[in-house]
Design a binder for these strands. Structure first.
Lengths: 233, 233
DNA sequence: CCGGATCCGTAACGATACTG
DNA sequence: CAGTATCGTTACGGATCCGG
């Protein structure tokens, strides 16, 4: 919690007392993809600065959102993970994120900063539970250098950074543009394979197709909002 | 949008580019209760300062979240209201708010800052649509000096600041403690009436009861979180 | 009185350097 | 690798001032 709080008897104000400072929600965003090391957080939020990251992690820890744990031997490396209470931020932050989808990207956003993991976070949240009912599988993606995976478990889908644990059912390699197109259902897995845009390293072509039947996002495409167009006219 | 943006190709980061600065989401929170005048916003967010409020409203306007309109004559007074896009923040902000419900209130929150309107905002969001299916009514509350109302319309409930428009079905007067207890279903409307804690100024006792059958919040009570207790032990 | 804009001291941020 | 310390710059918060 920051030194300056709103001090209001309002749950939103209290939530913002914990999460409202700059960078804080983005740290949580990263941890929604699984436990991460200090350096990995910093690598993905470089402009934050190491001092700010340390402050935020300390603050989130005392507020019970984040926890520092030492991985079991022989790794024995410290990582930060969400507490159960922090995990409950998944829905609110994904809701905010979905709102942000329709914002125009101005020239201040760095096109190079796009990451497949972040798309994965949104896909897992937007997926219809019915589509994966009764299915328990793991899909790993290797996208332009990143590696991440989905744990599909009977309607619940968990997106995670890094390689899948043993027993992965599907491993697909492609670049970020292809993954984005697959996510938006602008291209089918079959087309992607045939055009050489995606390679199935483990598993079958039909499993690849089913993966995006579960994960593919069919929501409305981002559009410039009516109100904004009006104000610019 | 602030001068400093995250510049990340991520919908959450873009949302925070628009909403992430201090006070901004609280301004939106107020406007979720209906259009408001500059002075009324300032009255409810006094620590913000008039300069900050002006900046935020300008920023939210260019981002298409908020719009300044002049009320029709003879009032002819300027108010700020959410655009349709801004209105879509209701669910994300209410989700964040509900997360904040379980945060402990430390000694830095001002107990005097509690407002019935803010409780109303949460109630309207948490209410089960089925409970008000087919019902089209308006309920006004006068709570410790504040006046606000609910527009119930077949499963959709809109909380609004100020007096209800003509044709109100129910008007109840009580203090904030009673309204809170009613909201949490810790007391029934009948009990509140009999104990002299609430007065029905317009409408019937049974309508009062039905209002809280629709609005009453039956979620789990706020508790200190397990993780937080552990970290303090 | 309302709707802002200006000024200014203080706290937060961002970059870099430094330490266990 | 995982942080802490330092420091110049920006944002915030409180007050005052101004036009309608």
């Amino acid at each position: 919690m920051p030194n300056k709080t709103y001090g209001q008897m309002c749950p939103l104000a209290r939530a913002l007392d914990v999460l409202g400072e700059r960078w804080t929600m983005l740290v949580v965003r990263e941890l929604l993809l699984g436990p991460k090391r200090y350096k990995d957080l910093l690598a993905v939020l470089p402009a934050m600065g190491t001092n700010r990251l340390g402050e935020r992690l300390a603050s989130l820890s005392t507020d019970g959102v984040v926890r520092k744990v030492i991985l079991s031997a022989p790794a024995a490396v410290p990582v930060y993970e969400l507490t159960e209470y922090g995990e409950q931020l998944r829905q609110p932050l994904c809701a905010l994120s979905r709102w942000g989808l329709n914002l125009p990207t101005d020239n201040r956003v760095d096109p190079q900063s796009g990451r497949g993991e972040l798309i994965a976070l949104g896909l897992a949240d937007a997926a219809a539970p019915a589509a994966s009912a009764g299915i328990q599988e793991t899909y790993e993606f290797r996208v332009s250098g990143e590696v991440f995976h989905f744990l599909v478990n009977d309607g619940k889908i968990l997106p995670r950074s890094g390689a899948a644990p043993a027993g992965v059912d599907l491993v697909v390699e492609c670049n970020l543009g292809t993954f984005t197109a697959l996510a938006l259902c602008e291209i089918t897995p079959t087309q992607a394979r045939r055009q050489g845009l995606a390679t199935v390293l483990t598993g079958t072509a039909s499993l690849f197709s089913r993966a995006f039947a579960i994960l593919g996002y069919r929501g409305e495409a981002p559009t410039i909002r009516e109100d904004l167009r009006r104000s610019r006219a």
